[in-house]
Design a protein around this nucleic acid. Sequence first.
DNA 1: TATTGTTATACTCTATAACTATA
DNA 2: TATAGTTATAGAGTATAACAATA
Lengths: 161, 161
Amino acid sequence: MVETPRAAPPGRACPAHDLGIVDGLVQLSAIVQAVLSRVTAGADLSVQQGRLLSILRDREPSMAQLARLLDLDKSSTTGLVDRATQRGPVRRFADPEDGRSFRVVLTDDGRRLTEVLGNEVAREVAALTDGLSDTNRHRLSLLAGRVIADAAVARGIGLSA
Amino acid sequence: MVETPRAAPPGRACPAHDLGIVDGLVQLSAIVQAVLSRVTAGADLSVQQGRLLSILRDREPSMAQLARLLDLDKSSTTGLVDRATQRGPVRRFADPEDGRSFRVVLTDDGRRLTEVLGNEVAREVAALTDGLSDTNRHRLSLLAGRVIADAAVARGIGLSA
DNA sequence: TATTGTTATACTCTATAACTATA
DNA sequence: TATAGTTATAGAGTATAACAATA
């Protein structure tokens, strides 16, 4: 929805090329997703496999915790981890504390791959703002951070403060 | 990639809660995508079906044109339109100008549904910025617009100017 | 009983390759 | 020959429901 360039709604201060906040955020989101898709595809991975790797960068979660982090059903998580395990970057190990539980961790190859992909995503996403001044890039970063923090609160996940 | 809250890289001006431009854009993008997913799911549609409807809001493209607009293979487009047609909101009609071509259009029900979804997306995406002042919301909109315009140029699709 | 995880099943979405029909 | 579109096939990703094993 809200994807096609369209005339701005009346009654707002809208300089010639302002898409408005709705189309602006939706289109910006699509551009960032396209970067994630392109970078992961370059490593012959899906976006979801990339998401999995990024989550495992600094965690060794159980399947149940992983399902929660990914916001997926536990059965979907089983499939995702199965495919990642077959491809190599991830492995399971039995949790010594709980006989029911398996935890998921990057393999050495997986860690190297995750670093490479993370660097590439960082470079390409940052490059999206190459046309902005340092000041405006920083403003954008701060405004995004505000929206993110508010959304976290709305989800009840709120941060410290 | 680049999804987990993490310490800011050194050597930059980073107030306490600034995620940095990379994580800021990636996380903001995820939040917007989650809205699209939630709204379309509320109408028992996939995100892709919602994308299809939004594209058809002001077009009656051929299958080939639609494939280009969606950036999908023509066979994927066939399936997407098949499923949408079975569900009701979309139909095909033979192009009177070209015997090989079929064009795709919203049905009356589909148009109503598209309006409802578009309004809901607009409301929920706009609500993401409820915590910003009008000035800051406008700044965010302008900055997003700049990034979007630059990305369009980078894709060679550049706008008028 | 509750929790952890997998399996079976069904559906959406996607691409590649091969095909038909029209231009 | 080139273009428009579909079909066949294969695979990823997802959820629901039913199941096994452990707590």
